[in-house]
């Protein structure tokens, strides 16, 4: 059941490495925020699936608005001379780790309960 997302990831990687268009150096920063936002969405999605409170609309809308807002904030920070970029990186980074921790918890719990059931 996890085959399709992994397959999607592979398709994305192939697309990203074959498509060649230059983006100016100034926008590399915003691209990295987009990367973080998308990773955050992936792990957030997996977490919500495991916690059985998944909502596709929430996930997709959250992904796009988060990425756009983060990029906008970083841009605004550039204009104002405040490094809001780091705030976005920090926020996404923290969420990534939290999601990862929650996923690990859930998986561990599932594994243990399965084992217990088998033992009984």
């Amino acid at each position: 059941m996890w085959v399709l997302p992994v397959f999607g990831l592979l398709i994305g990687i192939v697309l990203g490495s074959t498509l060649t268009f230059q983006i100016p150096l100034i926008y590399v920063k915003y691209m990295s925020i987009a990367v973080l936002a998308s990773l955050d969405s992936v792990f957030g999605g997996i977490r919500s699936v495991l916690e059985e409170r998944f909502d596709g609309t929430v996930l997709l809308s959250g992904f796009f608005t988060n990425a756009l807002l983060a990029a906008l904030l970083a841009y605004l920070g550039d204009r104002l001379g405040v490094d809001l970029y780091y705030a976005a990186v920090f926020a996404f980074g923290v969420r990534l780790f939290q999601n990862l921790a929650a996923i690990r918890h859930k998986l561990l719990l599932q594994y243990r309960s399965k084992k217990n059931r088998q033992l009984r």
């Binding site: 997302p5 999607g8 990831l9 994305g12 990203g16 990773l39 969405s41």
Partner: peptide, 13 residues
């Protein structure tokens, strides 16, 4: 999730 995976794979690479 597949859609998000495609996008994030694209961005990553």
């Amino acid at each position: 999730i597949t859609i998000v995976c495609i996008i994030s794979g694209f961005f990553l690479s």
